[in-house]
């Protein structure tokens, strides 16, 4: 593919994403307007005189027509201003910057676990189609589409933390390990490794592994199901027969030739499952007292802190849209038929 074509492709994709993002902003703006909380009253208190109320109303731009208010909203977002959190009295963007690494850490390890188990499971199910292996993979996958993530987290804590005692409890670190490592990236595993604090690393890992595995299970369910179906499609192709006729070992035919081609659509699936885990982390973080973006959103929600809720929604939505776009571009770059 020529460079010009590639850049045209990326350009078209970016334009489509811009429209989607504008839609997202429209929705968050709309939600912000229908909230029964009066933002003026929240700012001035309910004993303020009428002229103060009116002045603040004009300061907040609430006397303008809706489309002008939306335009102001857009300009503020473009300047990185998501408003101020009532709960922490920090700008929402600063708060989110602080909590996001924790969510990133969780979702990334979850995806790694899900993909590294889900892809082989899907391949095995496709190769041994109709046997007990296929059935086991199918039921494990279906169960992943049926179990509530917060419940699996609670039961996981009960079994692996309370009964077996093999993992750390809720939170990112044990109390004794708090504040030992100065944050560099905000991702504790990375920071601890960079600073050579291996005790902290071990403790952080023991806290991370259970929530990450719970999330990883959902990724596994999705990835294994899709891998199986892509592999079945590839194994029917004539090049597979050719490879076998040439006398290639079966393992090479399956894992190199067929899986190699199945990986093309799988890239999209993996990117989507990563985006889904960012979302799934909302409930997981609540269960594991994980100080990430999900818990930030739910905490703000319960305290009627609308700026924080909408800011968090916007950030998750933007990451979600971005990953979708990345998946689309990668897919078209890798698969010549989709260009």
């Amino acid at each position: 593919m020529t460079l010009a074509r590639a850049s045209r492709l990326v350009g078209r994709e970016v334009a489509a994403v811009a429209v989607t993002f504008l839609g997202l902003l429209l929705v968050t703006f709309f939600i912000g307007r229908v909230v029964p909380i009066d933002p003026v009253l929240a700012a001035v208190g309910d004993r303020a005189p009428a002229e103060v109320y009116e002045r603040v109303r004009i300061e907040l731009g609430l006397h303008l027509p809706l489309h002008e208010q939306f335009w102001i909203y857009l300009r503020k977002i473009a300047a990185g201003d998501l408003g101020q959190s009532v709960l922490t009295s920090n700008p929402v963007l600063v708060d989110i910057g602080r909590v996001f690494p924790a969510t990133l850490e969780l979702a990334t390890l979850g995806t790694i676990i899900g993909v590294s188990l889900g892809v082989p499971a899907g391949v095995l199910a496709a190769v041994h189609r109709g046997t007990w292996i296929d059935q086991v993979v199918r039921v494990v996958g279906l169960f992943g589409f049926s179990v509530p993530v917060f419940w699996l987290g609670l039961v996981g804590l009960l079994v692996f933390y309370r009964v077996l005692g093999v993992v750390g409890g809720p939170g990112r670190l044990g109390v004794a390990f708090d504040d030992i490592v100065d944050p560099i990236t905000g991702v504790i595993l990375l920071d601890a490794a960079l600073r050579g604090e291996w005790e902290v690393f071990r403790n952080a890992f023991s806290h991370l592994i259970l929530p990450a595995s719970v999330l990883g299970y959902f990724s596994l369910a999705y990835v294994s199901r899709m891998t199986r179906s892509f592999m079945l499609e590839q194994l029917r192709q004539e090049y597979v027969t050719t490879a076998r006729v040439k006398g290639l070992p079966e393992g090479r035919v399956v894992w190199r030739h067929a899986l190699g081609n199945a990986m093309v659509p799988l890239i999209t699936v993996i990117a989507l499952s990563y985006a889904n885990l960012l979302e799934g982390s909302v409930l997981t973080e609540t269960v594991f007292a994980w100080p990430g973006l999900g818990r930030y959103i739910t905490n703000s929600l319960l305290n009627a802190d609308m700026n924080a809720v909408l800011g968090g929604t916007l950030v998750v939505g933007a990451v979600f849209i971005g990953l979708n776009m990345l998946a689309d571009i990668l897919y078209r770059l890798v698969d010549p038929r989709a260009r």
Binding site: T28, I31, V35, P36, E279, A304, L310, T313, G317, F320
Partner: peptide, 12 residues
């Protein structure tokens, strides 16, 4: 993201 959007809606 479906759940997050539903959350924001219920919040409103």
């Amino acid at each position: 993201p479906r759940l997050i959007l539903a959350l924001a809606f219920v919040a409103a």
